[in-house]
């Protein structure tokens, strides 16, 4: 086994929270919830409020996953990396930013909004909040299911680069008025992977990977992050 899954966190159109504590949402027309910092951190956070929807979505799921793994308390910085897979990523923010450039001229563009037009920026926000000093990056690929990021995370742990990785997907969906739709479910889902979990009772199961790149959860091949979620929390799947 390369790693144990010790935390699961997500935000979907129907539920949000973590494997051990989540809530059912009163979804309006299948939309994702408008996330505010109190829902995630139990307190008001101006920094969180300044983020775009893509970043809030991903950061919330990461926070829920770390809480599930009892790794959300920042006592000291630790080596843990984050990988997010996404299709549209921060595209809605890109569009909003460039509309401002056209309307107001580039010299009046918002530096804060521009900083959010990089899909890995919210991983830096997560790193600051939770003291995570491993690398954070975004992965975009044609392969469905979001497993490419998971494979990179497992490889990094296999090579002894990072003892802990947080890996998942965050996608607010196709921005309004963007004329190119990819079939996908909007939402965010993250897993905490630990090589040597301090509390074995927190493990949902073990992950391994073959040389061909097949990912195995408790010895069974999984094809997507959604099927990994199902493997971890079968009682939540209707």
């Amino acid at each position: 086994m390369i790693a144990a899954i010790t935390g699961v966190g997500w935000v979907s159109t129907e539920t949000m929270g973590s494997g051990r504590r989540h809530q059912v949402l009163q979804s309006k027309d299948g939309e994702l919830p408008k996330i505010v910092s109190r829902m995630v951190f139990g307190e008001v956070s101006p920094r969180f409020g300044r983020l775009d929807e893509y970043s809030k979505l991903g950061l919330a799921a990461i926070a829920f996953a770390l809480k599930d793994a009892k790794q959300d308390q920042l006592n000291e910085k630790r080596t843990a990396g984050i990988i997010v897979s996404s299709i549209y990523g921060c595209l809605a923010t890109d569009m909003e930013y460039f509309e401002q450039v056209i309307a107001n001229g580039g010299n009046l563009a918002s530096p804060n909004l521009f900083a959010l037009t990089l899909p890995n920026i919210f991983l830096g926000e997560a790193a600051i909040r939770f003291g995570l000093t491993g690398p954070g990056f975004a992965v975009n690929g044609a392969e469905p299911g979001g497993t490419e990021g998971l494979k990179l995370a497992l490889e990094s742990m296999f090579l002894d680069e990072n003892p802990m990785m947080i890996v998942g997907t965050s996608d607010p969906g196709c921005p309004p008025l963007f004329p190119y739709h990819v079939e996908m479910a909007a939402g965010a889902l993250f897993f905490v992977l630990e090589k040597h979990p301090p509390d074995a009772s927190l493990s949902y199961g073990g992950l391994d990977m073959t040389l061909r790149g097949d990912v195995l959860f408790n010895g069974v091949e999984i094809q997507s992050l959604a099927s990994l979620f199902q493997g971890c929390l079968p009682h939540l799947i209707r």
């Binding site: 990523g89 890995n120 690398p135 954070g136 990056f137 992965v139 975009n140 690929g141 044609a142 990179l152």
Partner: peptide, 18 residues
């Protein structure tokens, strides 16, 4: 089909590492 890595100005350095 490959994958893309985006990590700001270290994107391709991370890609080489991976």
């Amino acid at each position: 089909t490959g994958i893309n890595i985006s990590a700001s100005c270290a994107s391709s350095t991370i890609a080489i590492a991976r």
